[in-house]
Amino acid sequence: TEVDLHLGDITIKLKDVSEEIVKRAKELFKNGWSAEFVKKWIEEAVK
């Protein structure tokens, strides 16, 4: 499945990412993480 994760003005296309990771990524962004950091976190999380 593909998900578009909207973080501010940046959209990250996610492939084969669990709902849990998407939820967590949104929380991290809301908590002040930059979109770049969230993207890196996701990449690490799906390895």
Rank of each mutant, 00 (worst) to 15 (best):
L7M: 09
A35V: 14
E27P: 00
K47Q: 12
K40A: 15
A25E: 00
E19C: 08
K40M: 13
R24P: 00
I21Y: 03
L7Q: 01
R24T: 12
K30A: 15
I12F: 01
L14C: 06
H6C: 08
L7D: 02
E2P: 08
D16P: 03
V3P: 05
V17W: 06
L5E: 03
K13G: 08
K40T: 12
V3N: 09
L28Y: 07
S34L: 10
L28H: 05
G8E: 04
E36Y: 03
E20A: 13
H6R: 11
L7T: 02
E44S: 09
L14H: 02
K39T: 13
S34D: 15
D4C: 12
K39L: 15
E43H: 04
A35K: 05
V17Y: 06
V3I: 14
L14K: 01
N31K: 09
K30Y: 08
E27N: 05
I42A: 03
V38Q: 00
K13E: 05
K30C: 07
K26R: 12
T1F: 10
E20V: 09
E20R: 07
K47W: 02
T1N: 15
E27D: 12
K47V: 12
K13L: 11
K40R: 11
D16W: 08
I21E: 01
N31D: 13
I12Y: 01
V22A: 08
K13V: 13
H6E: 13
G32F: 02
S18I: 09
D9L: 08
S34F: 06
F29A: 03
S18Y: 08
K23M: 14
W33Q: 10
K40I: 15
E43C: 06
T11G: 06
K39E: 13
L5S: 02
I10Y: 11
G32N: 03
V22Y: 08
V17M: 05
E43P: 01
V46Y: 06
I12V: 10
V38E: 00
V46K: 08
K40H: 13
E20P: 04
F37P: 01
V46A: 08
A25S: 02
E2I: 14
W33C: 09
D9R: 09
E36V: 04
K15D: 06
T1L: 15
E44C: 15
G32S: 01
A35R: 03
D16L: 04
K40C: 10
D9S: 10
G8N: 06
V22P: 01
G8I: 04
I42S: 00
E27T: 05
F37G: 12
G8L: 05
S18D: 13
V46I: 15
D16E: 10
T1I: 13
K30W: 04
V38N: 00
L7C: 06
V38A: 01
T1P: 11
E20I: 08
I21G: 00
E27W: 07
V46W: 06
V22F: 08
F29K: 01
E36I: 05
K13N: 13
K39V: 14
F29P: 00
L28T: 00
L14D: 02
I12K: 03
E36Q: 07
K13T: 13
I12L: 10
L28M: 13
V22H: 04
T1Y: 13
L28G: 04
V38P: 00
S18T: 08
F37Q: 15
E44M: 11
